[in-house]
Design a protein around this nucleic acid. Structure first.
Lengths: 142, 142
DNA sequence: GTGAATGTTGACAGAAATAGTAGGGTATAT
DNA sequence: ATATACCCTACTATTTCTGTCAACATTCAC
């Protein structure tokens, strides 16, 4: 039940963009360098996020990426599902093509359904703005 | 964020044991055959479950496995954590050896902590007995 | 006791998913 | 023009997951 690097890197990068929301585009190599990640790899993730409409790209010199909307309107859930696919612990919950041998008799499905519901509730309730606020709060304490 | 076959097979097998709780040991090949799984593979999972004290093995002819306690005292959470390891979406939540670069400044950790909490709450609140009850309820409706 | 059934263990190998690399192409600010 | 930075696709390496195999230990039925 681990998140892959796609979700982890992507969320962290989106958080970076959120921190600089409204300041114009930020170059990818900037973010990649700051987080010690491969620029090419991060590019692949950003491509997906862009197609999903979460970020906007600006080509050319001085170009880069920026959030497509306000940090308080972008949820962690949207980001993670875009990069990781649906968050279902098993495929039979979401994939029409997967049929359990005895579908309506599957006692475990009942468990998995509760897991995904709970998970989605949590990640859909947290926005990038929430992350920023939480961070600020923590720094106040120090 | 998928559950591996370890968790899925193991939970389903434990459910089988729960259905026959109090009827003496059940042979592994019985369960393996019923679910179309490799007996050897399931064996590995049962070995782990036994060491955790969730099931008891009876060796020799007419031997097999049975639950170590009443189905209502065995939670799905205990089973899944035994087979899958902790359910943390990232290692830095649980593994002392993993240090984020800027630990107390990591804004994403805040998100992951809520995910694992929510997940653990759900799976710890469901027992094998709950699964049996739910199943019965569904069969009544049909 | 003996043989058959069953559990125990660890090593190993194939398959699949994940992670990362490489490189040529395109748009744009200056 | 040219440098910068996004765009896209294919390929490779690595890791993890799944499953197999084989030798061994224990217990039961007789």
């Amino acid at each position: 039940m681990k998140l892959s690097t796609r979700g982890r890197y992507g969320l962290k990068a989106m958080y970076q963009l959120a921190l600089h929301y409204g300041e114009g585009p930020i170059a990818l190599n900037n973010i990649a360098k700051k987080q010690g990640l491969s620029e090419n790899y991060l590019e692949q993730l950003f491509s997906v996020l862009r197609k999903e409409g979460l970020i906007i790209s600006v080509r050319g010199a001085q170009g880069g990426y920026m959030l497509a909307k306000d940090p308080q309107h972008i949820t962690v859930g949207h980001i993670l599902r875009t990069l990781e696919g649906n968050m279902a612990p098993v495929d039979c919950l979401t994939d029409e093509n997967v049929k359990c041998d005895r579908e309506d008799e599957c006692a475990t499905k009942f468990v998995y359904a509760q897991m995904i519901d709970s998970l989605n509730n949590v990640i859909d309730s947290i926005t990038l703005q929430d992350m920023i606020d939480e961070q600020k709060k923590n720094e106040m304490i120090k």
